[in-house]
């Protein structure tokens, strides 16, 4: 049923999502939104893994990899938000440019 869609179109979709996330990461000055852009990038890679799994090697390995990526994304979001909260306590801002204590 998926035969009507070429693999390249799914790859175009994941490329577009990846670079929308990269643009957001480069241009936003709000650590929460930057973290959301990173989630977007991780999801585009997940789409790639599942699509290649379905088209080239139809067993379950790609889905398992995606499962572990989702796991790591959850752990990463929790730790990053803890860092953002403790940084907010210190400098009363979540602008990454304000956190310049280590700057020489």
């Amino acid at each position: 049923m998926i035969e009507q869609i070429p693999l390249t179109h799914i790859l175009f979709l994941s490329t577009a999502l990846f670079f929308i996330g990269a643009y957001g990461f480069l241009t936003r000055r709000n650590m929460i939104t930057m973290l959301m852009s990173v989630e977007l990038i991780l999801n585009s890679v997940n789409i790639n893994l599942v699509a290649f799994n379905r088209y080239l090697h139809p067993n379950i390995d790609g889905a398992i990899f995606t499962l572990f990526i989702i796991t790591i994304a959850a752990a990463e979001a929790a730790v990053a938000i803890a860092i953002i909260i403790s940084l907010y306590r210190k400098i009363k801002s979540i602008d990454p440019e304000q956190a310049d204590e280590l700057k020489f």
């Binding site: 035969e3 790859l11 490329t15 088209y55």
Partner: peptide
């Protein structure tokens, strides 16, 4: 680069 590759049929 992606548009150059040949079409890959699903397994």
């Amino acid at each position: 680069v992606l548009s150059k590759i040949n079409s890959i049929q699903p397994a």
